[in-house]
């Protein structure tokens, strides 16, 4: 399997461990990634808020760069997925609009084509379940994560709105994390926050609202007996992990729950060492998880 790869900005900024662990996990799974190093930020919904055409053109450029490789595209961020799907929906809806956007891109010799040879743009979670396959993933597991209690945390941008995100065709996309956790040998923890918002989008605008969301979900997962959370979104990771000590103050209770990136959880089951996967870079200590995994090996 070979895919054009958009790593996103945050995975090379505040969560470098995500980019690193993706490279390790993909390699071990036999997924070849062709990095789109000329591609630009998706705008994370913020640029679209300012100027739709600007966001649409920026993402059309990324799609066009991917289409040049003749490959489908993979991202590793719920927010990238949501922001790109929003733009793709508009680009695909109107031919004259698409022509206008492609004219802007023509100076670079690029053009976005609707439905080019089954071109898709999917985040790592969707790729794992729909294209790679859970059976094949199960075969690759070297160290089943037995006894590890994992709470899924999706991120809004891969959940809603359902019509835009392909739920008509793939209705179980809101259950994939549970499926992956089980295939890796872990135990799914049901708690209230799995499909709620981490609060990151308002962290600079209303810190209290933002951290109350993050803190509540982490607390609920702890109360439900989770050893860790797993998320396919680095922005959720920023609020759930990096801001966790601040979130604890807002909700007025001790927290301290490890939050893993999806490729890290996969990587652990594939036999990688927590250090290789960058887990010591996290703010909320991952030591309890590391000890459990060490006991399995």
């Amino acid at each position: 399997m070979k895919l054009a790869y958009w790593p996103g900005c945050v995975s090379r900024g505040f969560t470098p461990e995500l980019h690193g662990s993706t490279a390790l996990a993909a390699d071990a799974l036999g997924i070849e990634l062709v990095t789109l190093d000329r591609a630009n930020c998706t705008g994370a919904g913020v640029i679209a808020e300012h100027n739709q055409e600007l966001a649409d053109t920026l993402n059309a450029r990324t799609f066009a760069l991917a289409q040049e490789t003749g490959l489908s595209m993979m991202n590793i961020c719920s927010t990238c997925q949501g922001a790109q799907s929003e733009c793709q929906e508009r680009l695909d809806a109107d031919a004259s609009y698409r022509a206008h956007i492609n004219e802007t891109l023509s100076g670079e010799g690029l053009a976005y084509s609707k439905d080019a040879d089954g071109f898709t743009n999917k985040n790592f979670l969707w790729v794992l379940v729909e294209d790679y396959g859970l059976d094949k993933l199960a075969e690759k597991v070297k160290r089943p994560l037995e006894g590890l209690r994992v709470g899924p945390f999706y991120g809004c941008y891969v959940l809603r709105p359902k019509t835009r995100l392909g739920y008509d065709e793939h209705p179980d996309r809101d259950l994939y994390l549970e499926q992956v956790i089980e295939v890796l040998g872990g135990t799914v923890v049901d708690y209230d926050g799995a499909r709620r918002c981490c609060g990151f989008p308002v962290i600079t605008m209303n810190k209290e609202t933002s951290l109350r969301q993050a803190g509540t979900h982490v607390g609920d997962a702890i109360d439900a007996g989770a050893d860790c959370l797993v998320t396919p979104c680095p922005l959720c990771h920023l609020n759930l992990d990096m801001q966790q000590p601040e979130a604890a103050k807002v909700v007025g209770r001790d927290l301290g729950l490890a939050v893993l990136h999806l490729p890290q959880l996969v990587g652990l089951a594939l036999g990688f060492d927590p250090k290789q996967l960058g887990m010591p870079k996290h703010i909320a200590s991952t030591i309890a998880v590391e000890d459990r995994v060490a006991a399995l090996a």
Binding site: G45, G82, C156, Y157, L159, R160, P161, K162, R196, C197, G199, F200, P201, V202, M205, N206, T209, S210, Q213
Partner: peptide, 12 residues
């Protein structure tokens, strides 16, 4: 208007 966390819940 800036207290909305862009969660798309209301859309669905």
């Amino acid at each position: 208007m800036y207290d909305c966390t862009h969660c798309f819940s209301c859309i669905d």
